[in-house]
């Protein structure tokens, strides 16, 4: 199966879980800004959770399809349409030659992930498919998609057994995504340089509502709110940075560093977002607001583990549905027309 890029959208890049092992050389990890959504889209197709997919930002692409196979979306609701028919924000769906996948406008969230059963046929660069835009490294020729690009499935894209939205109400499964995130609460661990701030300023950091500014990209989000005062020194001897670190430059407005974050820097880091909540930032847009809440290492590690367990349970549940082929209907209601898929589940 091939996907032809008719329109590239605002910023569509290939991302997987990120590139590991090169931070010592100054090369950021890159990778999906919302790993939960990437891993969900892949799991719906029976792919390994970290398989490379398209990260679609706000204004989605228009893709035409040759061959047949299965695709899945997860993450933000960017108004996905298959031949004009609405798709859910989280949905696996079969496609055939001549189909057109398009996106109307962002309705909820910022980034959606489009995975393909079997993964994309692309070379790995330094152990990953992720696109690091500033370094022109990885992904599709080291850059965002452009009109005329052609993406190919790695295997003869298998028709996946599950087609449809995320099955609702499976017992024992954690809800997959907290949405919408417009007033998000993000959990952090204090440090490594919280000792550069007195208790009044630490309290201010946690009590304040922070607004995402227009300076928000894959490298980091600048936040607007009250000015955080450093105790005395406003800079440190540059040290290592991981995605999630919250820097406070001398002017006192925090910057949350994300997937493409530089690997080292000289501003004190008041706190660091836990791994399980990093994807919330991936779904925030300029104007959205966010509050920070302190948590512990044990809670953070358990939250990451809970997501991994959810994916495993979902994968097992989906395998049990094998052999039950969905039937699709077009249903007209007062609210408009819908594509409904009916499948026997056990």
């Amino acid at each position: 199966m091939k996907l032809y890029v008719e329109e590239p959208g605002m910023l569509t890049t290939v991302q997987d879980r990120g590139r590991r092992g090169y931070r010592a050389y100054g090369l950021p990890a890159a990778g999906a800004m919302d790993y939960r959504s990437l891993s969900l889209a892949n799991t719906l197709l029976g792919n390994p959770p970290g398989t490379a997919a398209l990260e679609i930002t706000l204004l989605g692409p228009t893709l035409s399809i040759s061959g047949s196979g299965t695709l899945a979306l997860a993450g933000a609701d960017l108004g996905a349409r298959l031949n004009g028919w609405p798709l859910a924000a989280v949905e696996a769906f079969a496609v055939k030659a001549g189909d057109i996948l398009s996106f109307t406008a962002p309705l909820n969230g910022c980034r959606s992930y489009l995975a393909i059963a079997g993964g994309f046929k692309l070379p790995q660069v330094l152990g990953s498919h992720s696109t690091y835009l500033r370094g022109a490294t990885g992904g599709y020729q080291g850059r965002a998609l452009r009109q005329g690009d052609i993406l190919e499935s790695a295997a003869s894209s298998p028709t996946s057994f599950w087609q449809g939205a995320l099955p609702a109400g499976l017992s024992g499964l954690t809800p997959p995504l907290a949405s919408p995130h417009y007033e998000a609460v993000v959990r952090v661990l204090l440090g490594p340089q919280d000792d550069y701030f007195d208790s009044a300023n630490i309290a201010l950091f946690f009590e304040s509502n922070w607004q995402v500014t227009l300076e928000a990209d894959r490298m980091g989000y600048r936040l607007k709110g009250p000015v955080l005062q450093h105790k005395a020194k406003r800079e440190i001897v540059s040290d290592g940075i991981l995605p999630g670190a919250i820097q406070v430059p001398p002017a006192g407005a925090p910057i949350v560093l994300l997937a493409d974050a530089q690997t080292c820097g000289g501003y004190p880091k008041i706190a660091t977002v836990i791994t399980a909540d990093l994807g919330i930032f991936g779904q925030l847009m300029p104007g959205d607001s966010v509050q920070f809440a302190a948590t512990t290492f044990a809670t953070a590690a358990a939250a990451t583990q809970a997501w991994e367990s959810f994916l495993t349970e979902l994968a097992i549940w989906l395998q049990r549905q094998q052999g039950s082929t969905p039937k699709r209907y077009r249903v007209r209601t007062a609210g408009g027309e819908h594509l409904v898929s009916i499948q026997t589940i056990s």
């Binding site: 661990l189 440090g191 040290d239 991981l242 590690a301």
Partner: peptide
Amino acid sequence: FLLQGDTGLVVE
């Protein structure tokens, strides 16, 4: 020894 989130330990 300083924590950097739930995946980083800084030895200063």
